[in-house]
Design a binder for these strands. Structure first.
Lengths: 326, 326
DNA sequence: ACTTGCTATGGAATCCATTTCATACTTTAC
DNA sequence: GTAAAGTATGAAATGGATTCCATAGCAAGT
């Protein structure tokens, strides 16, 4: 394969001039530029980007850490990231690490190794303190509220969003409210859990811990929730569910079992998924696409920031979409 | 930042020895190895992978071209790719290019530029002849049947699968069969279209071109299909739909409009999505996860193949999953 | 005693582009 | 008419590893 030296030799110019042509530097006479371009054409020359990465210390690549790509939540954030990356001509390295800390650390090490210019942690098993150890190597952005850290974050206030959801149900007259959650120990799971506890204790009401249903990750889990409810002696009359696809599973299963929504059971979901709209599901939209896009813009800003820029903490606004399941 | 030279100097050994330690080469005495490791620890040294990529000519990275990540079809294939990539310690560069040929070509150019070791085209706007021009630069795998080309492919036989679906409907007594398709001019769209045409003309039956419904990509499109049907003076009594989520939209909308499934309208879908299972949707599973995993294994085999290995054409088997919408 | 083979080590070449610095010519400005 | 600014070009340093080749000590085989 031809390299820049050979192009230079064959064009009768120096390698510097070839590099200038390659990089559209203005100080090249038009005849030399033409000669270089002709040689490049002839030899079908193409730059070795690894050499460029080495000398420039940049790769125009960003790693994205997430547990599973084929979850609505993650794939929409990824879509937001990817749209911006395409515009900025950046590469996204998808690191699907299944919440395995050792794999996530490997990705952060890529930052030390200069393989990438930044890392976006969409959802992670690592604690913020561990992540902070890597901020010296390059910009890091998380898509969850991590407080004021040495890395940036884009987030919606799950505590507040969740309480809004509960308040909405209370306003509509529901008093016995249950709660479906995905992972038990996720960073935002625990925030929502406190929101749930606080909401009821503040009002002097009992917290029904048997109505806090965990491990609701899939449509099937949603369907199973219905049967969990049917087996309870005291049932909630409303449910707040983190993930419209889980709510969809529940709604469809309810239909099969003659449980009327919302008369027998009101439901509010999260994420504003297409399947939810179809089912008339009331939901809290937490701007997933925008979250991905914002995460990319922040990290790009930090990469291009001349000064070692301060971390950014960007809050996004959720909104309740009223439909007919409450 | 420290480099290998400095580590060598401080450890009192040559750079070669440091490199050997870094790469677990056996011919290093244990005392020198210990000295090197100690210095690495002290200086918090980390390899610059760009230098490694330059000298080795490999990057352990593979680009994946697809139009949209947040489609069930693509995200499941991506999941399959990602699982294998994690095992092999390879990076996946997600190139969401929205079927834009110029962007797809940029990705193929990464192969020339030595930024990546291979390319997987999950779904592409490029024609096979164009792709073939890049096979000299590295291994390429497509996830669609491209015939015997100079690049590899993993595929299911859409023609055959589609005809099986039609046959299944005919066997169940349906005669007026319509067809919902996503993109009008996709490579597998046209294959299915011929399957549809051939199936009926072979039997001496008329092909109802008004029953060939295009641009059915989302749940909402599926819902819209119902109303398209209701406005027809002559309606199909069965529908074959490429994508269970589209079928789901249709089924849910049918429920709202008192159209009974399968009595008034039988439906068979594709992809075996969770939402389909929930709805009891009869579907054709085309092994998306396995397709992604297989694509990765093939490309990895070609990267590691000492000889410039022959392209692989791997066929996967679809299967009909009988549920209750037919 | 001599060849062969294994272990251990380092020097130097190699991968390939960018960028700083130095030089020199040509305009423009005052 | 001369200083300053802009244009054009190239030599050489730089980024940071891997690996080929050469050398040498030592053990085993014949």
């Amino acid at each position: 394969m031809a390299n820049i030296k050979e192009i230079a030799r064959m064009s009768g110019v120096s390698v510097t001039t070839v590099s200038r042509v390659l990089n559209n530097h203005p100080y090249v006479s038009s005849d030399k530029r033409a000669a270089v371009l002709k040689t490049i054409e002839q030899l079908n020359y193409s730059r070795n980007m690894n050499a460029v990465h080495l000398i420039t210390g940049r790769t125009k690549a960003i790693a994205v850490i997430l547990p599973h790509i084929n979850f609505f939540y993650f794939s929409v954030i990824m879509d937001g990231l990817a749209k911006e990356a395409l515009l900025a001509e950046y590469r996204l390295i998808l690191c699907q690490t299944d919440y395995r800390p050792e794999e996530e650390l490997k990705v952060l090490d890529m930052l030390r190794n200069k393989e990438i210019d930044g890392v976006v942690l969409v959802s992670t098993a690592l604690d913020p303190a561990t992540i902070e150890e890597y901020t010296e190597y390059g910009p890091i952005v998380t898509c969850q509220d991590s407080g004021k850290r040495s890395f940036s974050s884009v987030y919606i206030e799950h505590y507040s969003a969740f309480r809004h959801g509960l308040q909405y149900l209370v306003d509509k007259g529901y008093r016995n409210i249950g709660y479906c959650e995905g992972r038990r120990n996720g960073s935002s799971s625990s925030i929502r859990q406190s929101a749930y506890n606080d909401f009821f204790t503040e009002r002097g009401l009992a917290v029904h811990s048997e109505w806090m249903l965990y491990d609701c990750l899939t449509e099937d889990d949603g369907a199973a929730v219905l049967h969990r409810l049917l087996n309870m002696k005291e049932r909630p009359d409303a449910l707040i569910i983190t993930g419209d696809h889980v709510a969809a599973g529940l709604i469809i299963e309810a239909g099969k079992n003659n449980i009327r929504i919302p008369e027998d059971l009101a439901i509010i979901g999260f994420d504003n998924q297409p399947i939810g709209r179809l089912l008339g599901l009331t939901t809290i939209d937490n701007q997933l696409f925008e979250m991905g896009a914002a995460a990319f813009r922040i990290i790009l800003g930090q990469i291009n920031g001349d000064v070692s820029s301060e971390p950014v903490y960007q809050k996004l606004n959720y909104r309740i979409i009223e439909r007919s399941t409450v």
